[in-house]
């Protein structure tokens, strides 16, 4: 498939989703909305993990910053519930990006497993603040939002809110796509593959990674703002380590380095968890097994399966083309 037909396929799916979603069940549309928000978070992480090779274990921090900012502005300053919602979106992105810019000073020097550890520590700092800074964050109780914004359009309507989230998702996808196809994005991939070589070629690899870290933080913040209004509630649970791990799983399950994979992974994890936990009490086993099986057998995620299937059908009789290491 050429990148052109790929783009057409993605656009087709999105268009279909936009048309069908309002006619789904009143609950399913809530799930789709949440899946789209988590997809933004997963795509933001994919910029780091898939394109730059930096596995972050603290992406939930930026979701939390966007969400808490939205909730605090709404409850303490009554701000962001009208047209000012759009200002909050910008502020959420900026604050999360600024935090990432600060955290990045510590984190980006490290690589591999040290990067994992340091992002874990930074994420835990944000969680510690959310959990313990009672006067600002409500501590364990979290914060209830007074309601969704209204500016001519009532976002309290789930269909209206779906379209807002959908719009942000499509925009994020487009922007991130342009980003990864740009020379900057190509150099990120170069850094992922061979950092030393890129450095000897004269690239400032630190700056590239630092910028990628900030961009990822910004999109994480956007997801946070939308998340706060989707739930009507923010909680320290939004910032815990397992939320960050979930985001990683979404990317790895979908297929790192593909953007769309993160979105597919987000939807898969959300729907799987939602429906399984309704059906059976032992759903945690299934989820644990999904983690383990994905890691063992799907190194390139669901997107990798598609590629492999296609390759093996094209390359009938040419087994060396179809071969793909199951375990790398």
């Amino acid at each position: 498939m050429t990148s052109r037909t790929k783009a057409v396929a993605v656009a087709g799916v999105l268009l279909g989703l936009a048309l069908i979603a309002p006619f789904t069940d009143a609950f399913v549309i809530l799930l789709i909305t949440r899946a789209l928000i988590l997809a933004i978070l997963a795509m933001s992480l994919d910029i780091l993990l898939g394109f730059t090779g930096l596995p972050s274990l603290g992406q939930a921090a930026y979701l939390g910053i966007g969400a808490y900012l939205t909730a605090i502005l709404a409850t303490k300053f009554n701000f962001g519930l009208g047209w000012s919602f759009w200002v909050v979106v910008v502020l959420g992105i900026l604050l999360a990006a600024a935090t990432a810019a600060f955290f990045g000073l510590f984190a980006v020097r490290a690589s591999g497993v040290y990067f994992l550890m340091i992002t874990l520590a930074l994420g835990q700092c944000v969680w510690g603040l959310a959990y313990r800074w009672n006067s600002m964050t409500g501590g364990d109780n979290g914060i209830n939002l007074p309601g969704r914004p209204a500016f001519g359009i009532q976002l309290s309507s789930d269909v209206a809110y779906f379209y807002v989230v959908f719009g942000f998702f499509a925009l994020s996808l487009l922007m991130l796509y342009v980003l990864v196809k740009s020379p900057f994005g190509r150099s990120l991939e170069g850094i992922r593959e061979r950092e030393v070589r890129m450095r000897t070629l004269g690239y400032n690899t630190w700056l590239h990674k630092y910028l990628a870290f900030i961009i990822a933080g910004g999109f994480g913040g956007l997801a946070g703002v939308l998340w706060a209004h989707a739930n009507g509630h923010v909680s320290p649970e939004d910032v815990v380590l397992t939320t960050s791990v979930d985001a990683l799983l979404m990317v790895v399950l979908g297929g790192p380095g593909t953007l769309v994979g993160g979105a597919i992974g987000a939807a898969a994890v959300l729907f799987l968890r939602e429906y399984l936990s309704t059906l059976v009490a032992w759903w945690q086993y299934v989820l644990g097994a999904v983690y383990i099986l994905t890691i063992l057998y799907l190194p390139d995620g669901l997107m990798g399966v598609a590629t492999r299937l296609r390759r093996s059908s094209i390359a009938l009789g040419r087994p060396e083309d179809a071969k793909h290491p199951v375990i790398s």
């Binding site: 069940d25 979290g142 509630h233």
Partner: peptide, 21 residues
Amino acid sequence: LEDDQAKPPVGVLKAEKLIRQ
């Protein structure tokens, strides 16, 4: 019966599911 895992955000979604679905 729905499992909220004692996590408020999960509880919210479960409540919506019970009410709407």
